Simulated assay, not measured.
Amino acid sequence: MNWRFLASGVAVLVLLGLAGYSRIQDPERPSVISRFAPGAAEAEQSTAVRLRPGDTGLVADGREIYATACASCHGANLEGQPNWRQRKPDGRLPAPPHDPSGHTWHHPDDQLFALTKAGPAMIVGDGYESDMPGFAGSLSDREIIAVLSFIKSTWPAEIRARHDGINRQANGQN
């Protein structure tokens, strides 16, 4: 097993988990995303981010945005780059798939939004390098939610239900 990959993944989850915990404890305190992404504090909503895979208009917009902003790395069919779990010679990880074979659906909506808006390097910090940029300067919050809603709309019902459970758990609901 690649321990650097595992450590990076754990670091992302810990940081995002702490951000969510601190937000639950003090709703007035800025989240991790607002400290890293330009303009995020102003754009941050008072309610949690919610993907809307059943909103056909939003999903259609997300499909178009995905095709222009994401497919070149994550694949036209959300398949990701080959060997996405193995580091490239430069030490960076290839783009993961967003289909059910990937790990996207393992993360709650808030985390997916934060990673997309700020980019993994800003979220992880500590010199972490990633080919994925943050999209805060090029996509609106609505456009990011549209892309993520499109991605979720492609998952089978079982995976969507499991993702909904992950969201409930992340938001302190059972």
Rank of each mutant, 00 (worst) to 15 (best):
H98T: 11
A19C: 07
P30M: 00
V14S: 06
A48W: 14
G119E: 00
Y128E: 06
N83K: 12
I123F: 00
Y21P: 00
L6K: 15
S130V: 04
L148G: 11
A43L: 09
V14P: 10
G165E: 14
R160C: 06
G119D: 02
R168V: 07
A118W: 01
D126R: 11
W84F: 07
E44Y: 04
V59A: 09
R162C: 03
K88Q: 12
A95K: 07
P38M: 00
H106F: 14
R35D: 04
L139T: 12
M122D: 05
W84G: 01
W84V: 02
K152W: 05
D26K: 06
A19R: 10
G125P: 09
R87A: 13
N171P: 12
Q45E: 13
E158D: 11
Q169E: 08
D126I: 14
H74V: 02
S22Y: 09
N2F: 06
R23F: 00
R160T: 10
G165S: 12
R4M: 08
E143Y: 12
A71T: 08
L78E: 02
P97L: 01
V147P: 08
C73F: 07
W155A: 04
F150Y: 15
V59L: 11
G9S: 10
T154F: 02
Q45K: 07
G39W: 05
G39V: 01
V32P: 06
T104S: 09
P133C: 00
P89A: 05
P30Q: 00
R160N: 12
S46A: 06
V10W: 13
G165F: 03
C70D: 08
S46R: 09
D99R: 15
N2Q: 13
D109T: 08
